[in-house]
Design a protein around this nucleic acid. Structure first.
Lengths: 194, 194
DNA sequence: GTCTATACATTGATAGAC
DNA sequence: GTCTATCAATGTATAGAC
């Protein structure tokens, strides 16, 4: 093998270009979804040629996977109350800063089959952990509802940009959401004082 | 004007064909969304030609509007408790039978700009009514959260077909959802007995 | 390592024959 | 009232020049 240190700039430049393409693709996938995001548009936004994008990532779907692949989430474990707080903390985090990978996936989850599949896999483990913490007969329904609430809040805020929710502070939102999620994760209903 | 009663079958056949096209379009828009639904596929499913679909509806977007135009919903009004029950009743109804117009719109709400616009208009009035019933300082955030929960539940059940939620009975779901929504529509938190 | 040129399929939409 | 033929545009993906 000849001098590997002779051309360190080559690999570095490649990584830089690749990063620019990924950033541009992420933005476009988040804003416009899978179908409406074209390779040409990604290339233009990244300041490169469309052929180069294909050369680096192979296909549009592969590029999408690279953008949406999320780091494995930490486990949800403990009592129902503890799990609820872990979920609330996670929601607060996703409200504070835009979760790029999740948003890119969520934007296309209703219209791109591959995105729906990845989403399913992710929520399956999620459901199992919540359901296990609840431990009631209808735990699976409750876990699904917790997941549905979480989905609705993130989608409404970041993607639909619902007025009144996109401006609200994470602290306020999680405070309002706490009793709501508590009622879902507690097997015994606290009773409605009506 | 010559005999208008001579050809009653003409108009009737046209209505029948139009109805078949609308039914096919509805199914495809619900299942695949706006982008992935092609005029050709609609025509094929309806057993007619693609040109005929264009001739009847003018454009793909016009066809989409015809499919997604919903009958105006009844007002939400009364005390927070009453409004909550009205929302729960509406959710129960949408869980029992597939709400075709809403689902066609919801499937594309994240990826089709026109769908997002129509959705916005619909939820604006919704928010105003809920917010008015709550009448607290953070009423707009609460109303947006109620809407987010509603969105998450319907999407999870009918579009994402979340296991554990797509099988559950409407009665069980609304019973589980009641304390959750109550906590959002009551300005005074009932307190978490932890 | 980057870009040009292009093949190939599919789309929405139009014009006109029957 | 229904269908055939076609247009113009756009998409992904590939081959090859620089």
């Amino acid at each position: 093998m000849s001098e590997p240190e002779a051309r360190p700039a080559r690999a570095e430049q490649r990584r830089a270009t690749e990063a620019r393409i990924l950033a541009a693709a992420s933005r476009l996938f988040i804003d416009n979804g899978y179908e409406r995001t074209t390779i040409r548009a990604v290339a233009r936004a990244a300041g490169v040629d469309a052929g180069l994008v294909m050369h680096y990532f192979g296909s549009k779907q592969a590029l999408f996977q690279r953008v949406t692949q999320a780091s494995p989430m930490p486990e949800l474990t403990g009592t129902p109350e503890e799990v609820t707080e872990q979920i609330l903390a996670r929601i607060a985090q996703m409200l504070a800063v835009e979760p790029a990978q999740s948003l890119a996936l969520l934007r296309s989850v209703l219209t791109h089959p591959e995105a729906a599949e990845v989403w399913q896999e992710g929520t399956d483990r999620y459901h199992a952990e919540i359901s296990h913490a609840i431990g009631a007969a209808d735990a699976d329904v409750r876990a699904a509802l917790v997941s549905a609430v979480w989905l609705g809040v993130i989608v409404s805020r970041h993607l639909l940009k619902s007025p009144g929710l996109s401006d609200a502070g994470p602290q306020l939102v999680t405070d309002l959401l706490r009793p709501c999620l508590r009622s879902l994760t507690r097997a015994d209903l606290p009773g409605t004082t009506g």
